[in-house]
Simulated assay, not measured.
Amino acid sequence: MEIVNQPTENKKIIAGIMGILFGVFGIHKFILGYTKEGIILLLVSLITCGTAGSIIGLIEGIVYLTKTDEEFYRIYQVGKRPWF
Rank of each mutant, 00 (worst) to 15 (best):
M1E: 07
M1L: 07
E2I: 07
E2P: 13
E2M: 04
I3T: 08
I3G: 10
V4Y: 05
N5C: 01
N5G: 11
N5Y: 10
Q6R: 09
Q6T: 13
P7S: 11
P7N: 11
E9R: 09
N10V: 03
K11M: 12
K11P: 02
K12M: 08
I13K: 01
I13T: 13
I13F: 08
I14S: 00
A15G: 00
A15E: 01
G16Y: 00
M18V: 04
M18G: 06
M18W: 05
G19M: 01
G19V: 02
G19E: 03
G19Q: 00
G19R: 01
I20Q: 00
I20Y: 05
L21Q: 02
L21D: 01
L21E: 01
L21G: 03
G23F: 02
G23L: 01
G23D: 01
G23Q: 01
V24C: 11
I27V: 15
I27N: 02
H28S: 11
H28F: 08
K29F: 10
F30M: 11
L32R: 14
L32N: 13
L32C: 09
Y34T: 07
Y34I: 07
T35I: 15
T35N: 09
T35D: 08
T35E: 10
T35S: 08
T35F: 15
K36R: 11
E37R: 11
I39N: 08
I40M: 13
I40K: 14
I40A: 09
L41N: 14
L42H: 06
L42P: 03
L43A: 14
V44Q: 04
V44R: 07
V44D: 09
V44I: 15
S45Y: 07
S45I: 07
I47W: 03
C49I: 15
G50V: 04
T51W: 13
A52G: 03
A52D: 03
A52K: 05
G53R: 02
G53M: 02
S54Q: 10
S54E: 09
I55S: 07
I56V: 11
I56S: 04
I56Y: 02
G57E: 08
G57A: 05
E60N: 04
E60L: 06
E60R: 01
E60S: 06
G61P: 00
G61L: 02
I62H: 00
V63N: 06
Y64F: 15
T66N: 10
K67L: 10
T68D: 13
T68C: 10
D69C: 04
D69F: 04
D69R: 04
D69E: 12
D69N: 13
E70I: 14
E70K: 10
E71A: 09
E71F: 08
F72D: 05
F72R: 04
R74T: 14
R74N: 15
I75P: 06
I75C: 06
Y76Q: 02
Q77V: 14
Q77E: 15
Q77D: 09
V78W: 06
K80Y: 12
K80T: 15
K80R: 15
R81F: 15
R81L: 15
P82I: 10
W83F: 15
W83S: 15
W83Y: 15
W83T: 11
F84Q: 12
F84C: 13
F84A: 14
